[in-house]
Design a protein around this nucleic acid. Structure first.
Lengths: 147, 147
DNA sequence: CGTAGATACTTGACCCAATTAAGTATCTAC
DNA sequence: GTAGATACTTAATTGGGTCAAGTATCTACG
């Protein structure tokens, strides 16, 4: 199933288009991840590991509990995609790094996730710019101007 | 965590905007669902029950296994949000219907899921139409012209 | 120093989603 | 009337997610 599936309410044409797009995006992401033996969560985590990063930081970025990260990292580590190393200055903290296997697998996953590339490829440069602008403007309507 | 979190690759500006939008949409959907004691999956299922529908049909629409639907419906039924009734013409099949509680809860969920409404509200009618057109065009690039 | 409280992570228990493999009941077709 | 398909259920297993405790380490302050 994956994610928000099934359009919400009658709503407007624009809302339906948004929904359809989000639904397709989510499905494509999951399919690409599964194709490389990764769950969505694992792919998300692997994708964050372009630099060394602590568990806490990861949990905050992904908006979830630290214990959740512990188990995801443990599974990735069991497959040698990731490595825990002690933090030099802080004995409580671990730094997570991708192994070369992990980096290679993630690169392959990204390569196979062609949704966003295909989607933009179908638009002219001008249309791409327009779409990005409209999406950002729409997104701004959904948040209070916080902080 | 919820869904495709963490941008994929460097990519283009349009791709980043797509990702940010999808991510925000998914998070908002999940938050709204949780706010009414529903999981994402449960909200999706409840949302499909505007008409009587069989388990099989539900599974196909949501692109998942029938046994998955069985357990989701069972949980919803335990909370009296949904009801199984025998199919008049086919003894193997059950028709699922929302109870009035289920309909009320789903209406409240929809009401609280303001993401798509807020997003479109921030655009003029002309921009909304443009966005819908661009999203659909982008989406068309992601599929072979099948069937 | 030494201790109180915060912080980083882990562990265990629990719930839900999802898949797989079997199993039951019913239907269809020959 | 029986073989095979179909609709659903059940049980087992995996993984994601949260919560409540627990351990180790760090920080601050007396």
């Amino acid at each position: 199933m994956a994610a928000p599936s099934g359009p919400v309410a009658a709503s407007t044409d624009a809302e339906r288009a948004m929904f359809d797009f989000v639904d397709a995006y989510d499905r494509a992401y999951e399919t690409a991840a599964l194709g490389h033996g990764l769950s969505v969560a694992q792919a998300c985590v692997l994708g964050r590991l372009t630099r060394q990063i602590g568990m806490r930081e990861l949990a905050d970025e992904l908006n979830c509990d630290a214990s959740n990260i512990t188990q995801i990292i443990s599974r990735l580590e069991a497959r040698d995609l990731v490595h825990r190393r002690p933090h030099p200055g802080d004995g409580r903290s671990r730094q997570i790094v991708r192994t070369s296997d992990g980096a290679a697998l993630y690169a392959a996953f990204e390569e196979s996730f062609e949704f966003a590339r295909s989607a933009t490829a179908n638009l002219s440069a001008r249309e791409q710019a327009q779409l990005a602008t409209l999406l950002r403007k729409a997104l701004n309507g959904t948040r209070e101007p916080n902080s």
